[in-house]
């Protein structure tokens, strides 16, 4: 097996069980699908997958989503073409329940392509209200449109724009998801090239900070912002949130990012000698060995004023 990237060794001090972490990274990643409840019931999806010879296991924390063995190809099936389910990694199901969008609200997904999380938002809103799904990459935006069409989403507008410079007059939004471009270390089980990316590169962190700051600016007072990455790098996670928290002072606070039935670690409150806001403990770090998934980070913020 391929060697673990040297870059990962710097996490030795912050992983609870290093051996289990390394071992999990060497296993292929299970496949995961979630039910488009606008079109089908979880029981129908389960039955359709079973009829295709697959063995879906409901997730411990979400009964409408199913885990499949790593080599499954659930995309090449009738029920997929009919939009009865979407294929998406388990950790990518974490941000939307934490965003908790409500029917009729106005929601912004600032870095939306290829659209799996946009779709989760639209479905949770019962196909009503407003989801604005933005991305700055036209090719990836086209993929997003494909997702909208296959799942039959009638409440999504797509826009092509730099998220960090998203026009202020488009707001305010009740909730904003900002699932930023990142070094993708948490995708290592799917794509081992990702670890070549330099985690925590200053330009990348600057861009992430600008995106989160813009997301907070576009959110109404009292509204919620969810920040997510698929990397382990604290520079792209806690440090970005810490910077934005300091900039907004009492106008912004962290809410607990916890999901019942899903195991995570609290966010870091210190890294490389930098002391962070103590409330960063409320963010969620997902290490691959905790739930046999990819790696992930989520912060839930509430704008106070």
């Amino acid at each position: 097996m391929e060697r673990l990237p040297a870059a990962f060794t710097r996490y030795r001090a912050i992983v609870d069980d290093w051996e289990a972490f390394v071992e999990a990274l060497r296993r292929p990643l299970p496949v995961c699908v979630w039910t488009n409840t606008l079109r089908a019931t979880p029981a129908q999806v389960k039955a359709a997958l079973e009829a295709e010879g697959l063995r879906p296991e409901p997730l411990a924390w979400r009964r409408d989503a199913f885990r499949l063995p790593p080599d499954s190809q659930p995309g090449n099936r009738l029920a997929y073409v009919l939009g009865h389910y979407h294929v998406q990694e388990e950790v990518s199901l974490l941000p939307v329940p934490l965003l908790d969008p409500q029917p009729g609200e106005r929601i912004l997904d600032l870095c939306a392509a290829p659209g799996g999380k946009t779709a989760q938002i639209a479905v949770r809103m019962q196909n009503r209200g407003t989801v604005v799904a933005n991305d700055r990459n036209p090719l990836r935006l086209r993929q997003l449109s494909g997702t909208i069409e296959r799942l039959g989403l009638l409440n999504v507008t797509t826009t092509l724009h730099d998220g960090a410079d998203f026009p202020l007059e488009s707001g305010p939004f009740d909730r904003v998801l900002v699932d930023v471009p990142c070094s993708c270390e948490g995708n290592f089980r799917k794509d081992q090239k990702v670890a070549d990316a330099f985690a925590g590169a200053p330009e990348l962190c600057g861009q992430q900070t600008a995106l989160l700051h813009r997301a907070v600016t576009l959110c109404r007072p009292g509204g919620r912002i969810v920040y997510a990455t698929c990397t382990f790098a604290p520079e792209e996670n806690e440090l970005v949130v810490d910077t934005v928290l300091r900039r907004w002072g009492t106008a912004l606070r962290l809410l607990p990012a916890r999901i019942e039935g899903f195991r995570g670690s609290p966010g870091l409150t210190e890294w490389n000698g930098r002391r962070l806001h103590p409330s960063l403990e409320r963010t969620l770090r997902v290490w691959p060995h905790l739930n046999d998934t990819g790696g992930f980070f989520v912060a839930v913020l509430e704008r106070q004023a």
């Binding site: 106005r106 209200g129 407003t130 604005v132 933005n134 935006l141 449109s145 909208i148 999504v156 507008t157 797509t158 826009t159 092509l160 724009h161 998203f166 026009p167 007059e169 488009s170």
Partner: peptide
């Protein structure tokens, strides 16, 4: 309730 700017693509 979409925004007028940026101009909606779809």
């Amino acid at each position: 309730r979409p925004p007028a700017r940026p101009r909606p693509r779809t």
